[in-house]
Every structure is written in C-alpha cells, then in structure tokens.
C-alpha cells in the first residue's frame, strides 16, 4: 500500500524534479518545495482502502475560491470598507473588498482610489471629463459625489472585483 502511494507521488513529481537527485530534470522549470506544496495534485479515493472506489473515475479538482475570485494574486489585495456611502450597491460598513490592480477599469466600475490622503471606494464616473473633472459616485442619498479636478491628489488603486462579508453573525 505504501509502495503504491509512493509510486503515485513519483509519477506526478517526476514531471518536475528527479526525486532521488533532488534536482531538476533538463528543460524543466525549477520548482521549489514550497511551490510543490501548492500544486494541485488530483486526489484519489480508495488508494488507502486497497479496493478502488467506483467514484475514482469521476475524480475532479476541488473548487477553489482563489481560482474563481483572484485571477491575479500578485496584483490583488484586500481593503476594509468603513462607512455607509455604498449601501445602495450592497457594500456595507466592515465589508472586505478584493481589489485588483490589473483589471481594466471603465466608466461605472466600482473602484478604490487614493484621494487627498486617504482611500475611498466609489463608482467611477468619467462622463464629465470634458468639463475638466471626474466624479466618484456614492450609492447613498446622504452622500455627495466627490469631484476630482486637476488640484486634487487622485491615484486609482484598482478595481473592486468581489465583496466579502461574514454572515455568521446575522
């Protein structure tokens, strides 16, 4: 049984490194041990049981939230929302936004921007560009749009690609 497991491991690992020599096979990209740990190896039921499970034929990779929501991990980071300015879009105080610097931004997107010393989450409105200013639109009647003109410090930080909230407290 143990030998079987070992053989399986070798099959997958041998694509990457020579286990005995612990060095890369010619032409293969060098992968560190740390990366191997994060490689997704298909998971086989029934190996340890000694009798193959019929479900083994249908083995499939597990769903991973990172795959679904974080296409650019190097360019993504989290921001915590403070305040009520976006409740009209369902973004509440304490929500965690995932921000992606590589996603293309266009008019109407929810963005995070650095404005005059602090971060803000708003919808981008460039329709007033010809008049020499942009608007960052809140989604709450109690808040006014933020007008950005040439004198403001305004640095776009990325597009909000998903919103996360722990609903266990509800």
């Amino acid at each position: 049984m143990i030998r079987h497991c070992f053989v399986f491991l070798r099959i997958f690992a041998s694509n990457l490194i020579d286990m005995e020599e612990n060095r890369p096979i010619d032409g293969a990209e060098i992968i560190t041990l740390d990366e191997i740990r994060h490689l997704k190896l298909p998971y086989f039921e029934g190996l340890a049981a000694g009798y193959p499970s019929p479900a083994g034929d249908y083995q499939h990779e597990k769903l991973d939230l990172n795959d679904k929501f974080v296409p650019h991990p190097e360019a993504s980071y989290f921001v915590r929302v403070s305040g009520e300015s976006m409740i009209g879009l369902g973004i509440y105080d304490g929500d965690i936004c995932l921000v992606d610097r590589l996603e293309e931004i266009s008019d109407g997107n929810v963005v995070v921007a650095f404005v005059n010393g602090g971060l803000t989450v708003k919808t981008l409105d460039t329709s007033t560009r010809d008049k020499g200013y942009l608007r960052l639109m809140p989604h709450n009647p109690d808040f006014k749009p933020i007008i950005i003109d040439a004198y403001d410090q305004f640095i776009l930080q990325g597009k909000v690609t998903s919103i996360h909230r722990d609903t266990r407290k509800y």
């Binding site: 980071y77 989290f78 921001v79 915590r80 929302v81 403070s82 305040g83 300015s85 965690i96 936004c97 995070v112 602090g118 971060l119 803000t120 989450v121």
Partner: peptide
C-alpha cells in the same frame, strides 16, 4: 487581516 487598509 487586522492591518488591511481601510477605505471610506
């Protein structure tokens, strides 16, 4: 998690 930036 305690240190992620805050946005208003």
């Amino acid at each position: 998690w305690s240190d992620i930036p805050e946005a208003t």
